[in-house]
């Protein structure tokens, strides 16, 4: 099933999604990966405000290639999500509702997803050119010194992702393989 969803990405809007659904996202999302996550959680621990409104935000784990002149974005596929696992629960507590990445998450992250009614989306790892075409605008919000790892606001149109962990904690990295193997019997 393919579902179209447009921001802001409230819990209510994401609650209808189920693991395995194909989703086309439109609206504003944010980018952050390893270094930006480390900084954001350090800021929160110091009691400082984050450089953007994280409530109802989706964060895309990506470090793009530089944009060519006249283009909003370079190649922009997902990076491996487990490296953000130590930081993700704290950000969900602050109101983040969605993550886009690739690969399985820790039990702690899945628990935080359930508790906060968030969703973890997977994009196709290695399909950076395809994803780039769905990004129509990009601006740096903070951490410019981090280069590719800077915090950016993206405007996306029909960005193809799959629900990997829904707000009930169903995990495609456990169920997908099992379902396929049962089907083969």
């Amino acid at each position: 099933m393919t579902v179209k969803i447009t921001g802001p990405f409230t819990k209510e809007k994401l609650a209808f999604l189920r693991t395995g659904d194909d989703v086309l996202l439109s609206g504003e999302i944010y980018t952050a990966r390893d270094a930006a996550h480390k900084r954001m959680t350090e800021m929160l621990k110091r009691g400082e405000a984050l450089p953007f409104d994280i409530k109802n935000a989706i964060i895309y784990y990506v470090g793009p290639t530089p944009a060519k002149p006249g283009r909003p974005m370079g190649s922009a596929g997902p990076t491996t999500s487990y490296r953000m696992d130590p930081y993700a629960p704290m950000l969900m507590e602050e109101g983040q509702t969605g993550m886009i990445g690739k690969g399985p998450r820790s039990e702690e992250v899945i628990e935080a997803i359930k508790k906060n009614k968030a969703v973890y989306f997977a994009a196709i790892g290695g399909a950076g050119a395809l994803m780039s075409k769905k990004i129509i605008r990009s601006e740096t919000v903070a951490f410019d010194d981090l280069g590719t790892e800077a915090l950016r606001r993206l405007t996306v149109r029909d960005m193809p992702v799959k629900v990997a962990v829904d707000s009930f904690g169903n995990d495609i990295y456990k169920t997908g393989r099992k379902k396929y193997l049962e089907e083969q019997k």
Binding site: V62, G63, T65, I124, G126, G128, L130, K133, P160
Partner: peptide
């Protein structure tokens, strides 16, 4: 979709992977 990515990279001049 992976095949489409290969095609897009070549035709539109976007690196295959970030």
């Amino acid at each position: 979709k992976i095949e489409e990515n290969i095609k897009t990279a070549g035709e539109d001049g976007i690196p295959l992977c970030q």
